[in-house]
Design a protein around this nucleic acid. Structure first.
Lengths: 347, 347
DNA sequence: GTGAAAGCGCTAACAG
DNA sequence: CTGTTAGCGCTTTCAC
């Protein structure tokens, strides 16, 4: 028996008494092959333990079976879930995942985009580091389809899947207003990112429709997310007339806000309402109520892959946009938890 | 100007007035090239916007520039961080990351291992779904080096990087014992996984050295992690003589345990000490103290890549094992938090 | 120090 | 339905 996994298509052809082309046809299920020959080839494949050389195949077709996924950071739980969703969908279609973290760095992202083009990946799903600066051009040149997730690429428009950010921000803010808050601060990702820009707009819209003033001193935007959220929250708490509620523009900012409140003591945290984005597995453990706009992350990943697959199959319509609705989730403290908090203090 | 990114090595050779072989030598920095020629080639490359075709290169060398990473689930924060660490180290060396989730499924894992072999990846880092069943043989056959992380592969031994699980489990248990607990339950991943087996051993060792009985009714092991942790905790709380402390065998089990305690009310949670593994970003927000054995995850990823790189460079020593020490971290409730909990109750 | 030539394993015309 | 042929872009001997 020949060494397993080292046989080539020619070895199989030889053993089956056919040509390499026929074996190729059997393998790809493409083109006509008689049942008899198919069987013989199949047997030869098994006998030799033949496995197609995927690199050779990619070389020949000048297209690999990878889906490139460019996100800012896989450690951000939002992207973690997105990675998982994309991966599941991709593998189900015979593709595997090439993962890149851009760290919100346009330069790094540019290099990865070029890399994906060099690798002739089958398609790319990306979350642009910047609406204006990110360019997918190298992929277009190579005929590689691209889908954008969570954020838009204004410079090089492509199919896009994102949350209805205006709605999520507006609804969260309305919720806070309905709870009686008038001084509400917003801590947001910087506006060069789609979600930052749109969520700010939603916040402002809700404030204005309620006839509330939008105090510039209560709008914080920046980079860095968790650290930024903490820092912004500390700043707000230091104001002479601090806000009574916080609208946090993304999941990491929410975490930073909660940590800052924690550092100032839960007492104060109780007096300050927090609204954020994304549900996280630990939220039910919090000793404080919180409201979030949950994103349908799995669906976002799936829809992105669906759009990409359509493009990979030749779809050539103008770029489309899929806007998914948020789902508002309130994490209330339950009665036992409240009693318990009391018990804790009595110790 | 020719279309960017479509030029081949021959076009460059032509324009620079040299042969393709020479261009190849310039590109790879391999073999002798005169300074004059190098410059001319470099210019031609720039003028044409030439980019080497990576698929062709991989085809020729029969080795791709990917590191395959096979973990159980990227949504598990431990693996998320591991992915990030491996990725950073890999990219720094010019490799990119192929990500696979085995979902603790040996069959799925087997397929991915075969896939990595078919793709002739440069190396694989894996976290075996089973000590006994997982086989890296297809990779060995293809001459692809493998490093195991977090868990051992007993069937096909390879370089391994893992936590000193015996120490972490023993130290956590000792801590609980020092706090005065005598009835301590252990909730662990099943023993076909390295960490499950070793952490159980560490737990038992600490109990025995303290002269405490190891009650089989207080040892829960199983799959599913978070759901399993919750379910096990509910079971323990239902016992006529429930434990006063819990040793949780991994991060997701810890989360499940905390959620179960939450459902039973924080009062009870206060009376039950929890020790777990891995520090998670939200732990400082908990309304209850907890102790964890933090793993040096970044270092694990780096060390794994280092070992892999050594193998890729021809190192042929017998398999080595790197065992890293845990760091015990106590998340205490601070004074303000306690006062706040009281305030909350007074409302 | 440089060029010529061969070929990696596969697929896709094109013939028959 | 099947075989023949050509060649994808690169690296790597081997001459010169």
């Amino acid at each position: 028996m020949p060494a397993r996994g080292k046989a080539t298509i020619r070895d199989v052809a030889c053993r089956a008494g056919v040509s390499a082309a026929t074996v190729s046809r059997v393998l790809s299920n493409h083109g006509p092959v008689s049942e008899d020959v198919r069987m013989r080839v199949q047997q030869a494949i098994n006998a030799l333990g033949y496995r197609p050389n995927r690199i050779a195949r990619s070389f020949r077709t000048q297209r690999s079976n990878f889906i490139g996924l460019i996100i800012s950071d896989v450690e951000n739980p939002f992207y973690t879930s997105l990675v998982r969703a994309v991966e599941d969908t991709a593998y189900a279609q015979g593709y595997s995942l090439l993962l890149c973290n851009s760290d919100e760095d346009v330069e790094k992202e540019r290099a990865y985009i070029q890399f994906m083009a060099d690798e002739r990946v089958a398609g790319v799903i990306g979350s642009p580091a910047s609406e204006q600066e990110t360019s997918f051009a190298p992929l277009f040149d190579a005929g590689i389809p691209v889908v954008s997730v969570d954020r838009r690429s204004l410079r090089t428009p492509v199919d896009t899947v994102l949350l209805d950010n205006l709605a999520s921000a507006r609804d969260l803010t309305r919720y806070l207003i309905a709870r009686g808050h008038r001084r509400i601060a917003a801590i947001l990702p910087n506006v060069s990112i789609t979600s930052g820009r749109e969520r700010l707009a939603g916040f402002v819209q809700a404030m204005q429709e309620a006839g509330l003033p939008v105090d510039p001193a209560l709008i914080c935007e920046g980079k860095g997310f968790e650290a930024f959220g903490m820092q912004a929250m500390h700043y707000l708490l230091g104001l002479s007339d601090p806000p009574t509620a916080i609208f946090a523009g993304n999941n990491l900012i929410t975490l930073g806000v909660l940590k800052a409140l924690q550092e100032h003591g839960l007492r104060m945290a109780e007096d300050i309402d927090v609204a954020g984005h994304d549900e996280m597995p630990w939220m039910s453990l919090l000793a404080k109520p919180i409201i979030v706009a949950a994103q349908p992350i799995r669906e976002m990943g799936q829809r992105a892959m669906d759009l990409l697959l359509a493009r990979m199959n030749g779809d050539a319509q103008p770029p489309r946009e899929v806007k998914l609705p948020p789902r508002l989730v309130v994490h209330q403290l339950n009665a036992t938890a409240k009693a318990a908090a009391c018990g804790e203090a009595r110790r």
